[in-house]
């Protein structure tokens, strides 16, 4: 099959082919999702090595349970869910606590001191935002990454994180408001827009 044809195949078509026994076609899925999944894992696990190991684990799990994938949902949502759960397992195995999500800045006063430090050292607003996101509790950071960087809808985010649609929306709004309040402290919005 030519590279052009392969690139134009949908996820479902590739999966059907893998299920039929063309297991080598699974590399197309790996190529398609490795960067997005790695990005998510890196943000959750905060470590390159753990993220790579979890990435391999996630693709392996998806491969093993491919027969359980039902085509009513999109493959990306199903796979993101595997990635998310794998990351949570890694965190649990390292006995790291999964921080409770923030509702406002008052929930995490240390974020204000981090913010001062970050603001003093970054060169551009993009880095400032990403470094702030890295300091947020996992769920707050994740909802922003899934929504903006991965382009998932709120409905898909709710499926990946196993929360209700309303909770996904509330979490996104709260996380964005935390960043907004920090941005306002420095009047940074005037530089960005």
């Amino acid at each position: 099959m030519s590279k052009y044809v392969m690139k134009n195949l949908s996820d479902i078509e590739i999966i059907e082919s893998v299920k039929r026994g063309n297991t080598a076609d699974y590399t197309m899925i790996v190529d398609r999702y490795k960067d997005r999944a790695f990005n998510l894992l890196k943000r959750m696990l905060k470590n390159d090595m753990d993220a790579e190991e979890a990435l391999q684990d996630s693709f392996l799990k998806a491969f093993r349970y491919l027969n359980q994938f039902r085509e009513e949902a999109s493959f990306s949502t199903w796979f993101y869910r595997i990635v998310y759960n794998t990351a949570l397992s890694v965190i649990a195995s390292k006995k790291r606590k999964i921080e409770k999500e923030m509702t406002s800045l008052e929930d995490m006063p240390e974020l204000i001191s981090y913010d001062r430090e970050i603001y003093a050292t970054v060169e551009n607003p993009k880095d400032y935002l990403m470094r702030l996101i890295d300091k947020l509790p996992i769920k707050n950071a994740l909802v922003l990454i899934l929504y903006y960087i991965d382009g998932l809808s709120l409905n898909e985010i709710s499926l990946v994180m196993d929360i209700s649609l309303v909770n996904a929306k509330v979490l996104l709004h709260r996380s964005r408001n935390i960043l907004r309040d920090l941005l306002l402290k420095h009047n940074y919005q005037e530089e960005i827009l």
Binding site: N39, R43, L129, Y148, I149, I192, L193
Partner: peptide
């Protein structure tokens, strides 16, 4: 500020595997 976040976040790329 919210618009700034929205605009900026949409320009951020993946960290590559």
């Amino acid at each position: 500020a919210l618009k700034a976040i929205d605009v900026l976040m949409r320009t951020i790329d993946y960290e590559k595997a």
